[in-house]
């Protein structure tokens, strides 16, 4: 019967939503198969994750406090998580596949000599953990079994729904056993993005533009629609390579993987490498003047029309609805 530890990630005191999603899913597993769900949280200043963690399914929350935890450091975070795992021996450790989690999980697993699976979208228990994850850019899924005392599993943000079926979590602390001398690579500064800019990988709604927008000057049309939705703005590789927008906007195999509630693809053909980055979005809207474009194969709603005619009207209509 598995005890599942969930890494409750914070950056600058902000908790990542994927932590609550992982707790919710972990609780489903332990309710069905026994075992407990443990939140594990590293923080620098007094924190208050217990209530939220309990609500989302944690039986216990273990916290460790150290001034060093005000900024991510792969070595120190690895030390702390390894100390927790060696002391409490969970069977499974879930880590969100965020910028931090993708950095932490492989290092932690290698230190523990543990199985490591990344970017999971499904978890099941069949005498042992079975992890479902997309491979080959999402063209197929693999069911992966793990061996050994503990498995470190990365979870794709938004793969699991939030559930508030838990109660109060018991609070506990643990010693992270830090050896700051071992940390060689150090984060010396964090440059924050311009205020109001929504991070692509965390956005609930993403509006992306492709070559159908014809020129860099028209990306503003995408940004306007994104603003109306309260969305982040994305792009196909074609327009990133053409220099119309910065690479940080690129969605796809060689860009970012997003799984928002709503993905709006405007003037994007839907090449397999683009789909790799967005096909697990909950609802996909495609606007493309070619009714045969492959993007419509993955879309839930489609308009076979001209983005120059549809987008301004859509922006207005969304603004209307948002106004209430």
């Amino acid at each position: 019967m598995p005890n599942i530890a969930v890494f409750i990630e914070q950056r600058a005191g902000q908790i990542k939503k994927v932590a609550w999603q992982m707790l919710s899913e972990a609780r489903k597993l332990t309710d069905a198969h026994g075992g407990e769900v443990w939140g594990v949280h590293l923080h620098a200043a007094s924190c208050n994750v217990n209530e939220d963690a309990g609500k989302h399914g944690a039986h216990k929350v273990f916290t460790a406090e150290a001034a060093e935890f005000d900024r991510y450091d792969s070595e120190l975070w690895t030390q702390a998580m390894a100390a927790f795992i060696n002391e409490h021996k969970p069977d499974v450790v879930l880590v969100g596949s965020t910028a931090m989690g993708k950095d932490l999980a492989p290092r932690l697993a290698a230190r523990l000599k543990a199985a490591c699976v990344s970017d999971a979208v499904g978890l099941s228990w069949d005498g042992g953990l079975v992890v479902r994850r997309p491979v080959f850019a999402g063209k197929c899924y693999a069911d992966v079994a793990t061996r050994g005392d503990v498995a470190v599993v990365g979870i794709r943000p938004n793969a699991f729904a939030l559930a508030e079926t838990g109660g109060a979590a018991e609070a506990a602390t643990f010693s992270p056993g830090l050896d700051a001398g071992a940390a060689k690579a150090k984060v010396s500064a964090v440059e924050t993005a311009a205020a109001g800019q929504i991070s692509l990988t965390e956005a609930e709604v993403v509006v992306s533009g492709g070559r159908g927008i014809k020129g860099p000057e028209n990306y503003a049309m995408i940004e306007k629609l994104a603003e109306a939705f309260g969305a982040a703005s994305g792009a196909s590789r074609a327009i990133v390579d053409a220099g119309w927008v910065d690479y940080s906007h690129q969605v796809g195999q060689t860009g970012k993987t997003v799984a928002p509630n709503l993905y709006v693809a405007c003037g994007i053909s839907g090449a397999i490498q683009h789909l790799a980055g967005m096909s697990s979005s909950k609802c996909i809207v495609a606007i493309n003047k070619d009714a045969a474009a492959p993007i419509f194969k993955v879309a839930d709603y489609g308009i076979a029309g001209d983005v120059f005619e549809v987008l301004p009207a859509l922006t207005e209509a969304v603004q209307e609805i948002k106004k209430g």
Binding site: A115, Y141, A142, D143, R147, K297, D300, G302
Partner: peptide
């Protein structure tokens, strides 16, 4: 330490 038990097609998406 990990083993692929099986491959499966991606979950079907509904009609557009």
């Amino acid at each position: 330490l990990t083993e692929v038990k099986q491959f499966a097609p991606p979950p079907p998406r509904g009609e557009c």
